[in-house]
Design a protein around this nucleic acid. Structure first.
Length: 576
RNA sequence: GGACCCGUAGCUCAGCUGGAUAGAGCGUUGCCCUCCGAAGGCAAAGGUCGCGCGUUCGAAUCGCGCCGGGUCCGCCA
């Protein structure tokens, strides 16, 4: 694959010149040299900080070094103009030919444009991982979308990515689920569940109607065989059945959102296979597990606090604030112990980069898990915390009350605004910032709705292309000189760089913002054609200009599709 | 009491890992369109980047201390 990232190309050229001017610069210094798009067209197409970064170590004045670089760069074939500016920036204006030559590159690559070269390392992105105790609710939505888009983004950037869902099917909650299903089973048999409910510690935990069909199904297949028996007789059966049914339900919800995981890992299976002891062994071998008593939390002390000896993981050695318990007082493992084992399992499966997408309520859990992964493999765990989403309607918060029946389930949200809007709008915010999701705004068909705006841009491209002569990759493009056309081309060529940067930063929201800006550039060109008929794409009497513009429109459609694919949003052919 | 996240225009939010005059949408104001490429278009006003020190050629961005909002804090997962 030829280098699609023009910024990387120019950076290479610049580094060569810099090496000639200042031999022997340390790699750390060179690594800090950037070539970035300019904000102000007066600064040319690209700008570099090279002179400012290298000046000090090279013992030179930044402005003077910039001037030397400019002198050499100005002679390069693809560079029309090089200028030193400000405190020592090197501003580059590319030759029109080099800029235009990127359009055939885009057309040739198609949607693969921006695809990074294969990178070393297998990445595992774990997201959603909701307890299998009921349908997904809106609280799960953001993590689902962010995780899915991040995984797509990393794949686009060249990583080998696995999308994974961790099924928490081993703890007290799925036992509570089984008991709740048993109540529905008794009801299905027309038996009174009251006496049984009395015996459930904490009562019926999951009272939702979605468990009724499960009770009916069990009554159908097993009759009253378990009606009078002890819990030990039916608990495993009911639990397994319920978990399987709930996972089917969850998968349907995910499918409605366009989310598809490659791997579903069961905590229960891991525990059954003795994975926990195995996972902890490496920590034991390193002497990182010991029996000890934790200090009480400073300040507010829980009412029932008393010093207690526990089996602890030495998390403090890896940056955590306190050591963390891996066993409860009854000797059974904590959730943390299971999670250590699960992450050890991911490491054992050959993943060298682990990424977890969690809700903000798990923020306090990040350090200990990162500490565990560091201890297990020396590798790094990245955690994306997704902050709360407030659902709004016309400026007022939508009450999420189960009793009122409003917007509890993810399905409600998807049914109201559609999967494309849900996905795109969830990605219009940094994941670690709280956000408001406005249902009314999600449905408007104006610029204020980014989904609409971007899809509309694509639809407009397609509508032009349907009426246009076939795209010609070798078209003469010199007529593409209007400011709006140039701005669009400049935006298009930043796509490969953006993919790389967004992936490195683990920030899929940057893709959404880029698409919004790209759509803005395209709409601006479209609008310019309204005032000035000479700028319209299809010119009956000017075949040469028409062919050039068709190439530009086709390239725009390609990049829009390429970006929408990362977000998992449909590139519609026309607006309806 | 402590940990983590956030604080940028009236509102909702970006700001490319420290760069040049801090941006977008909505809202506001003004003009244009109503013979169609208008589910509009152009333009303007609007900011002590929560506050204060510090690091440096240079800080919205990094460090420390406050203030405000959120999440969480040993046998829940």
């Amino acid at each position: 694959m030829s280098e699609e990232n023009l910024f990387a190309v120019l950076r290479g050229i610049l580094l060569d010149e810099l090496a000639t001017l200042c031999p022997g610069l340390a790699p750390e210094i060179l690594a800090r040299v950037e070539v970035t798009p300019t904000k102000d067209p007066a600064h040319g197409d690209m700008a570099s900080n090279a002179a400012m970064v290298a000046a000090k170590p090279a013992g030179r004045n930044p402005r003077e070094l910039a001037a030397s670089l400019v002198e050499r760069l100005g002679a390069q074939p693809g560079i029309a103009k090089a200028e030193a500016a400000g405190p020592g920036f090197v501003n580059l204006t590319l030759s029109p030919a080099l800029l235009l030559a990127q359009l055939p590159v885009i057309l040739g690559a198609g949607e693969a444009y921006g695809q990074g070269k294969a990178r070393d390392g297998k990445v595992n992105v774990e997201y959603v991982s909701a307890n299998p105790t009921g349908p997904l609710h809106v609280g799960h939505c953001r993590g689902a979308v962010v995780g899915d888009a991040l995984a797509n983004l990393l794949a686009k950037a060249g990583y080998e990515v696995t999308k994974e869902y961790y099924i928490n099917d081993a703890g007290a909650q799925v036992i509570a689920l089984a008991r709740s299903v048993y109540v529905r089973y008794l009801e299905a048999l027309k038996l009174s569940p009251e006496a049984y409910i009395e015996t459930i510690p904490g009562g019926v935990q999951y009272g939702g109607a979605y468990l009724i069909p499960l009770g009916e199904e069990l009554a159908r297949s097993h009759g009253d065989r378990y009606a009078e028996t002890s819990e030990a007789e039916w608990l495993d059966l009911f639990r397994e059945f319920a978990v399987a049914q709930m996972m089917a339900l969850i998968r349907e919800d995910l499918a409605a959102l366009g989310v598809r995981h490659d791997v579903f890992s069961s905590e229960h299976a891991l525990v059954e296979a003795g994975g926990v002891a195995r996972g902890l062994q490496s920590l034991r071998d390193q002497g990182l597990i010991y029996h000890g008593v934790l200090e009480p939390p400073k300040g507010k002390i829980p009412d029932d606090w008393e010093p207690r000896e526990q089996e602890l993981f030495r998390a403090t050695r890896f940056g955590d604030d306190v050591d963390r318990p891996i066993a409860k007082s009854d000797g059974s493992y904590t959730y943390f112990a299971n999670d250590i084992a699960y992450h050890a399992d991911k490491v054992a499966r050959g993943f060298d980069t682990l990424i977890d997408v969690w809700g903000a309520d798990h923020g306090g859990y990040v350090k200990r898990m990162q500490a565990a992964v560091k201890a297990l493999s020396g590798g790094k765990l990245d955690v994306l915390l997704c902050q709360i989403v407030k659902v709004m309607k016309n400026g007022a918060p939508v009450r999420m009350s189960k009793r009122a029946g409003t917007f509890v389930e993810l399905r409600d949200l998807i049914d109201e605004v559609g999967p494309d809007a849900v996905r795109f709008l969830m990605l219009m915010r940094k994941s670690d910032a709280q956000m408001e999701f406005d249902l009314a705004a999600a449905l408007t068909q104006t610029r204020e709705n980014p989904v609409f705006y971007v899809q509309y841009a694509h639809a407009r491209c397609r509508s032009v292309l349907r009426a246009a002569p076939p795209v010609d990759v070798s078209a003469d493009l010199h007529s593409l000189a209007a400011p709006e056309e140039q701005a669009l081309i400049r935006r298009l060529i930043t796509w490969p760089r953006l993919v790389e940067q967004a992936a490195d930063a683990r920030e899929p929201h940057r893709i959404a913002f880029y698409l919004y800006e790209l759509a803005g550039d395209f709409h601006a060109l479209w609008n310019a054609g309204r005032d000035n008929a000479a700028l319209r794409f299809l010119q009956e009497d000017k075949p040469k200009e028409t062919v050039a513009r068709v190439a530009l429109v086709a390239a725009t459609a390609i990049v829009l599709r390429s970006g929408l694919a990362v977000l998992g949003v449909t590139p519609v052919e026309e607006m309806r």
